[in-house]
């Protein structure tokens, strides 16, 4: 049932216009790369498996892992070129069928390079989660290079009691390489609907050097912004919390307060809206924000997903 791309015959080596590295690109499209990937995750009995998959261009998924049993599929999403130049697009979609559970991650950061062609660099992620299904979506950060014209769009459609648990980490400029984001733009949208009704929407339209980038109500001049959300009532608003929920909340808030005291350049805040638990983080180093989200995930997963944490192997390398 596994349909994983292994053939290299569609690809040839060319020098990437920005990175200067040799990378592969489909022969039939030298000017712009429009890579697409579709994957269906299914479940039969207690076994989760990869259903129909479809791909176009340099995007693929590696053979699935089952590090925590046959009922939860771990998938690694690969984009061998590693980055987008002007006119490139990535389109990723997952269809998570009834009662199946998968965890998706990426082995490396996404890069959106300086744009010299004038055409935008686009990444679209679409996730369909059917009733009783769960997806945990933990990509590494996207790095928006100075001069990029990035459009990043994530759209999650939930049906019934489907659950999405995932994060998005965006580096605006490269703090560690002293390459700040002083030109270009970023448009980033994140929407979640449940049975057609919007439950979470967020959109950042950032022009380099605008007050939104520097102002305290905006990005505060910081370079990394992250949002982590779980579409569940972890701490229901309109009912009394159980002792277990109260303890968990206390533990998280205590941990958050302590983390911010130790890391005064990083802000973390969480909030519970109806059916969406949201964490936002703002700092200067992607690694730190990822660490924050991983820690929170470890604390929350048993309650939110009903299973203990199982760190994807690739995070440890």
């Amino acid at each position: 049932m596994i349909d994983v791309v292994t053939s290299e015959k569609d690809f040839q080596s060319v020098r990437h216009p920005i990175s200067g590295q040799f990378e592969s690109t489909p022969q039939y499209c030298e000017e712009q790369w429009h890579a697409k990937l579709f994957a269906e995750i299914k479940c039969s009995g207690n076994k989760a498996f990869l259903g129909k998959t479809d791909h176009y261009g340099p995007l693929r998924i590696q053979r699935p892992f089952f590090p925590e049993g046959r009922d939860c599929l771990h998938l690694y999403l690969l984009h061998p070129p590693g980055g987008l130049v002007g006119g490139d697009s990535l389109s990723i979609s997952f269809d998570v069928k009834e009662r199946s559970h998968c965890l998706v991650t990426t082995p490396s950061a996404g890069k959106i390079y300086r744009n010299i062609r004038g055409l935008p660099q686009v990444q679209n992620v679409g996730v369909n989660v059917h009733s009783g299904a769960k997806i945990e979506y933990f990509p590494q950060e996207n790095i928006i290079y100075d001069g990029a014209e990035a459009h990043i769009n994530t759209s999650v459609e939930l049906k019934g009691d489907g659950v999405f648990c995932g994060w998005e980490i965006t580096c605006i400029g490269r703090y560690e390489s002293s390459d700040p984001f002083v030109s270009g733009s970023l448009k980033q949208s994140f929407q979640v609907t449940r049975d057609g009704t919007p439950v979470f929407s967020d959109r950042l339209i950032l022009t380099a050097n605008s007050s939104l980038q520097s102002g305290v109500a905006g990005l505060q001049g910081k370079c990394v912004a992250g949002t982590f959300l779980i579409t569940t009532d972890l701490f229901p608003i309109d009912e009394a919390l159980s002792l277990e929920q109260k303890n968990l909340q206390k533990k998280i808030v205590g941990w958050q307060t302590e983390f911010m005291q130790r890391n005064p350049d990083t802000l973390i805040a969480m909030t519970q809206k109806p059916m969406v638990w949201i964490v936002r983080a703002l700092g200067n180093r992607a690694e730190k924000i990822r660490q924050v989200f991983e820690m929170l995930w470890a604390m929350i997963r048993p309650y939110a997903m009903g299973r203990p944490v199982c760190v994807p192997r690739i995070w440890c390398t």
């Binding site: 959109r203 950032l206 939104l212 109500a217 505060q220 805040a269 909030t271």
Partner: peptide, 18 residues
């Protein structure tokens, strides 16, 4: 194109809850 992008305001509001 609708949406504020006010990360600092969102953080302030969430931290205000605590």
């Amino acid at each position: 194109n609708i949406g504020s992008g006010l990360m600092g305001m969102a953080l302030a509001s969430a931290l205000h809850e605590q």
